[in-house]
């Protein structure tokens, strides 16, 4: 198959594939390449860059764009050490236990 034919094949079929259900390591590598390249640019230029770089592979463009979307969000769970996330979860459980105990204490008062 010539590269053009492959491209047509991929373009045609990728529209049938909901994104990244069929993600393979090779595909992910390609996504990564575009993602890293986009990070070198201003966020304002990402859309234009992807439109050009994905060469009509709409599924690929959507895939990378949806990931880049997470670059612009604020404070994220994963940016804190796991130990802290765990501690906060534990605090919720401890507060829960305290509140649960209250009705049992009431008859004593």
């Amino acid at each position: 198959m010539t590269s053009d034919k492959i491209k047509m094949y991929v373009t045609h079929h990728s529209s049938l594939i909901t994104h990244h259900c069929f993600m393979t390591p090779e595909r992910y590598k390609e996504v990564g390449r575009l993602y890293r390249a986009a990070l070198e640019l201003e966020p304002a230029r990402w859309a234009a860059y992807l439109a050009e770089a994905c060469g009509g592979d709409e599924a690929l463009r959507r895939e990378v764009a949806s990931l880049l979307d997470y670059e612009t969000r604020g404070e994220r769970l994963i940016d804190q050490p796991a130990l802290e996330v765990a501690a906060r979860a534990m605090a919720q459980v401890m507060i829960g236990d305290q509140i649960r105990m209250r009705p049992r204490l009431r008859p004593c008062l």
Partner: peptide, 30 residues
């Protein structure tokens, strides 16, 4: 219902477990 009412914010044990699962899936890709 009480537990649900006590959930403070979206973070917690569920997230840590879900994150762990996602990380295992990521290892398959990279």
């Amino acid at each position: 219902s009480l537990d649900e009412a006590l959930t403070i914010g979206p973070e917690g044990s569920d997230d840590l477990v879900a994150l762990n699962d996602a990380l295992t899936a990521l290892a398959e890709l990279d």
